[in-house]
């Protein structure tokens, strides 16, 4: 994995593949060339962005389903909490590049390895937040639900999960932003995500325009995703917006 770094140091600015976007701005590798972005949006940046979004969505969705299942189980059977925390913490602490590389041997250098790695980093955050949200439901509220004759499933669906929603969405926000960051190194094992143009740009001098465009898109994606989730939470939990000040 040292190759690109060596290449960066030894070779000077090489700007291949600028195709129809070639301009003096690009040739001189100026700080930012809007014309290059215009010409390469379709062939380079958009597919990378789309791939990045798909990688993230799939990882968080799968991570959420697994974490929700684990959290519901641990909510009901307290004994399951510690082992789950132990395993997910272990997964979370494995250095990300190492985990990607470790998965290549058994799974192959493909999208599955990429998703397995991304998913494993979401588990700890999501599990802890969902469980904390469920546990935060005030005892007297559960008591009232029980006293009015709700079944376990009814009180879970009508009372506990809605009340845990702010904590759950908070967990999803962290998981999404973390995954967006991690997905930039998926390129090391699988050709997808904004890591691909970032890596190419670094290998080319670095080619500033592409580096800034791809890096900027990553940051923008994280901000937009986070903002969207904040908005979604506001819409889903109107009751949390009226707390008396």
């Amino acid at each position: 994995m040292a190759a690109p770094i060596v290449q960066l140091g030894v070779t000077g600015p090489v700007i291949p593949n600028y195709g129809a976007g070639s301009s003096s701005c690009v040739v001189h590798n100026h700080f930012f060339c809007a014309d290059w972005v215009g010409h390469n949006w379709g062939p380079v940046l958009w597919p990378a962005l789309r791939g990045h979004v798909v990688l993230t969505l799939v990882a968080v969705a799968i991570g959420f389903v697994i974490s929700m299942t684990l959290a519901l189980a641990a909510h009901r059977y307290r004994l399951l909490e510690q082992p789950t925390i132990l395993v997910t913490t272990f997964l979370y602490t494995i250095p990300s590049l190492a985990l990607f590389e470790l998965l290549v041997a058994p799974v192959g250098a493909n999208v599955y390895s990429a998703e397995i790695a991304l998913v494993s980093y979401t588990l700890l955050i999501l599990f802890r937040n969902i469980l904390a949200g469920l546990r935060e439901v005030p005892a007297e509220v559960m008591d009232a639900a029980d006293g009015m004759g709700m079944t376990r499933t009814q009180s879970l669906l009508r009372v506990e999960l809605p009340l845990a929603l702010p904590a759950i969405v908070a967990g999803i926000r962290i998981a999404v932003v973390t995954t967006i960051a991690l997905a930039t190194i998926v390129y090391t094992i699988y050709d997808a995500g904004l890591g691909v143009p970032i890596h190419t740009a670094l290998g080319e001098g670095p080619f500033k325009t592409e580096l800034i465009a791809a890096g900027g898109l990553t940051v923008l994606l994280a901000l937009v995703a986070d903002g969207t989730l904040v908005l979604v939470q506001r819409l889903l939990t109107p009751w949390a917006q009226v707390q008396r000040s």
């Binding site: 005030p138 007297e140 509220v141 009340l163 009751w239």
Partner: peptide, 8 residues
């Protein structure tokens, strides 16, 4: 005893 209205 604590009323226990559903806050949501």
């Amino acid at each position: 005893q604590q009323v226990g209205l559903f806050p949501h």
